[in-house]
């Protein structure tokens, strides 16, 4: 699979596409009633179509809380989130979530897991079967459809979880350190898969990680959050992705510079 040869869209389209807002986070604050310090304070954030946003930050900076609020799992203390201009405050199928733990339904076969979203929306059996086949192929799990989740390896489970989220056809996908529990080799393989999927499906992705290399490799845009109270300290386009969003040269001088810059930003917080 020569993904380095792929250029999913021209630079010019890229700029235009950038302008369409998918998710708007409007002046979000979040605070536990038992605590003095706010977890998040006055967060404003727009996620655009076709954007791969990677979020870095030390633990306790509120990045998971932010994800939970965007997912509709948690209500903000103040402010609101909108999807394409519409306010929402509970989980919706337009926003898919991939968890750190795969969270597949353990009693369902992989194909039933992947088809779950379509089944909930009342699609016909044939339609579900067709879609499930397509998405299993996309994550290279065609042969695992009839297995139960516990029969799969860690990387396969996470791929199945991604297929399940994609199959429900969300407008944006939120991922909370989805590869952090995988070994280095599987992780790299998964990053490769994800980039491929992203360029094929053109979904907006909001991706939390604590791995700077991962953020630089995947993100078209990188956020760094800082704690006490949680806020966005850096919001930048990833210059390494300017020409070829699908491939990043780890040995490039620019990469090394960016890497130290981001690590510095995370540490000072």
């Amino acid at each position: 699979m020569a993904i380095t040869n792929r250029v999913p869209f021209e630079d010019k389209d890229f700029e235009q596409e950038q302008k369409r807002k998918i998710i708007e986070v409007k002046n979000i604050s979040f605070q536990y009633s038992s605590q003095q310090q706010a977890v998040l304070q006055n967060i404003d954030l727009h996620l655009h179509s076709n954007e791969f946003v990677c979020v870095l930050g030390p633990s306790g900076c509120g990045k998971s809380s932010l994800l939970n609020i965007i997912a509709g799992f948690q209500k903000p203390t103040t402010g609101e989130v909108q999807i394409e201009g519409k306010h929402y405050s509970k989980p919706i199928s337009e926003i898919g979530v991939v968890f750190q733990h795969h969270n597949l339904f353990p009693w369902m076969k992989i194909k039933e897991n992947v088809g779950f979203g379509l089944k909930m929306k009342g699609h016909s059996k044939e339609e579900i079967e067709k879609q499930v086949h397509h998405f299993l192929q996309l994550v290279q799990l065609e042969s695992a459809g009839d297995l139960l989740p516990h029969q799969l390896s860690g990387g396969m489970k996470q791929r199945a979880a991604i297929a399940r989220t994609l199959a429900a056809d969300p407008k944006a996908i939120l991922m909370d350190e989805p590869f952090s529990s995988l070994d280095a080799l599987t992780k790299e393989n998964m990053q490769h898969h994800l980039l491929l999927l992203w360029s094929e499906t053109k979904k907006t992705i909001f991706f939390i990680t604590h791995d700077v290399d991962e953020a630089l490799r995947l993100g078209t845009r990188i956020l760094v959050m800082q704690p006490n109270p949680g806020k966005i300290a850096i919001d930048m386009a990833n210059p390494l992705k300017r020409n070829n969003p699908a491939a990043v040269d780890f040995h490039h001088k620019e990469f090394q510079e960016l890497r130290s810059y981001l690590i510095g930003a995370i540490k000072t917080s």
Binding site: G72, P91, N103, F105, W107, A168
Partner: peptide, 29 residues
């Protein structure tokens, strides 16, 4: 019941009733 499991099914478009029928009940069997 793990909260993430219920959240996951809601994000996949399950209604309250579907959540009960397809997730909560089988989880408890």
């Amino acid at each position: 019941l793990p909260a993430d499991r219920m959240n996951a099914s809601l994000s996949l478009g399950a209604t309250k009733r579907q959540l009960f029928q397809y997730i909560i009940l089988p989880s408890c069997y």
